[in-house]
Design a protein around this nucleic acid. Structure first.
Lengths: 234, 234
DNA sequence: GTTTGTGAACCGTTTCACAGCA
DNA sequence: TGCTGTGAAACGGTTCACAAAC
């Protein structure tokens, strides 16, 4: 029974990273992984990894570890990337074009099936081989092309409107690159990717680190610290 | 005394959103905001907002709310975006170029001061008006141009090497677009922005939502649900 | 020896509830 | 009445510790 399980937000993020590591190891010909190695690649403790994998119903062998192939398959099943996801990209600006050109996505179960833009100067052109359609065509195209997710890469002012169009057209989830919180029905999950927010978080982390090193004692291995994790010992 | 306070990861994300809302309201001419309105724009409860603002030392007026201008200034001070941050962008591929062209960043306290790439076919060209330099020039340029943060937009295979170069050159933080966990000294914070991970998180959320609606009773306002938050009543 | 699986303790964040002020 | 500030309670995720399995 695949797909059973409630996965928390941070756990979902980690699963994504475990999957990457499992794929990397599989390509290298490795057959098993330990929870510790898996954890190192995701910045998590080994016990954390075992908890995560336990939740999604994957089990390993004591003394051996987890089967790399089975692990990857199990994570894909939980995430839901066994089949191909077709996406509608709205906004053929800088971010939109970069995304459409990001060919690697195809190998990972995703596919940009249609591109939309409001500007007449862009409509009709081709972006990564796909003809740009006017946003009025969203509803019909999403249905015809069996599109599951919408990607919003438009200026913040237009984001809400586009979100409404996509939801009305029947997409099941939205990836939002616009720096604006979208108001959509809870039936359609939204994941935000926000450059500015990321930069601000980074700068805040830098500031906090500065204060620590000047105010507190110079060298102190902080508990929540990132990097080459110093979890050893038992 | 600005900058005093320990801010948790989720709190940092929210502060970033409060700042956006405060700026938006300021532009609209509004003078005060309530914690509830601020919370709605960030997907947080009102009490949460008050806690957050209390931590950074901002206080509002009972019965009135928070002063929009003072709030924005306080958040900027905590984040550390009063001054301008100069960034080194490594990787002039699709994502790199999109980022360099994202002019809005300038208005928000950030500036791409240099662009680097390894490919000889790209070095010497101009990206958003900036000449692309070879990655060997990172160390010298970062120092000369007083660059504080590095942005990694290269393929995953090269990410770690670039990270090492940036850290050696003396950047204080790294924004990483490569889908690879970087191993860097804890002294240099890293914030990851990962499209694939975001897409996978989205698809997982979609799958989970599907199961809920089919397995459980059809209509149920879930507690952790997103969207127009139904927090009313008291 | 190595590594998994898991109950229990721990910790930080979120929510609740309400006193206090405009 | 509307809204802030805050202790206390509730919640959820992480870490610990160790028995069991290889």
């Amino acid at each position: 029974m695949p797909g059973r399980a409630r996965v928390s937000r941070p756990a979902a993020e980690r699963l994504s990273l475990y999957l990457r590591e499992a794929e990397r190891l599989a390509a290298l010909g490795r057959v098993t992984v330990s929870s510790r190695q898996l954890g190192a690649s995701a910045g998590a403790a080994d016990a954390q990894v075992r908890k995560d994998l336990g939740i999604i119903g994957t089990s390993g062998q004591p003394g051996i570890g987890y089967d790399v192939a089975a692990l990857a398959a199990a994570i894909r099943a939980v995430i839901g990337v066994q089949e191909r996801w077709r996406a509608a990209l709205v906004g053929a600006g800088n971010i939109g074009r970069a995304l459409a050109a990001y060919r690697r996505l195809c190998e990972e179960g995703f596919e940009v099936a249609a591109v939309f833009d409001r500007a007449e100067s862009v409509v009709g052109r081709r972006v990564a081989g796909i003809e740009v359609l006017p946003i009025e065509a969203i509803a019909e195209t999403v249905r015809r092309e069996a599109i599951g997710i919408g990607i919003i890469a438009v200026p913040p002012e237009a984001a809400q409107e586009v979100a409404d169009l996509l939801v009305a057209a029947g997409v099941r989830g939205i990836l939002n690159f616009a720096p604006r919180r979208l108001q959509v029905t809870p039936r359609v999950p939204v994941v935000d990717v926000d450059f500015r927010s990321a930069l601000e978080r980074l700068v805040l982390a830098v500031s906090q680190r500065d204060e620590e090193s000047t105010a507190d004692r110079p060298l102190a291995a902080r508990p929540g610290a990132r990097g080459v994790d110093p979890r050893r010992k038992r």
